[in-house]
């Protein structure tokens, strides 16, 4: 048996997830988005290569193609979730003081959402006719 210093039952401890506050959600989401990034990044590189040196109308035509636009939106979503989780680990590894750490983790979330929102807005604007 584990220590009996707590009044909580083992089931209650599992449900409450203890002091960690969360389970394997962070790890698992990092892996799921890693898999989707693998596919979407290859597509993204392909789109960028297809756009190299193209004049504006051709670039807009490609980016506003529904299939390309949907894949770009998925790429942005997947990449932003993945990079937010990854940077959070880096911050937690190197920023030890509680205050700066909380602020940095929060700023990290704001950064990921801002970059994602700007990119999604741009793709949607192109798709719906500039």
């Amino acid at each position: 048996m584990q220590s009996n210093s707590s009044m909580r039952t083992p089931l209650g401890r599992v449900r409450g997830l203890g002091s960690a506050k969360s389970g394997t959600g962070h790890f698992w989401l990092q892996r799921v988005t890693a898999v989707s990034n693998l596919i979407l990044t290859v597509i993204f590189i392909g789109v960028v290569i297809a756009l190299v040196g193209r004049p504006y109308p051709a670039a807009v035509a490609l980016l506003s193609n529904p299939c390309v636009a949907i894949l770009m939106l998925l790429f942005i979503l997947s990449a932003c979730i993945h990079m937010r989780l990854g940077m959070q680990v880096v911050i937690e590894d190197y920023v030890h003081a509680e205050g700066p750490k909380v602020l940095a983790v929060m700023a990290n979330t704001f950064f990921a959402i801002a970059v994602g929102a700007a990119s999604v807005y741009a793709v949607l604007k192109l798709s719906f006719g500039g």
């Binding site: 980016l63 990079m83 970059v115 700007a118 990119s119 741009a122 192109l126 500039g130």
Partner: peptide, 16 residues
């Protein structure tokens, strides 16, 4: 890559 996403976003916003 994290920092570089700013450039990707800027490029997409420029296109839009």
């Amino acid at each position: 890559l994290y920092l570089g996403t700013v450039l990707i976003a800027a490029w997409l916003v420029a296109a839009a």
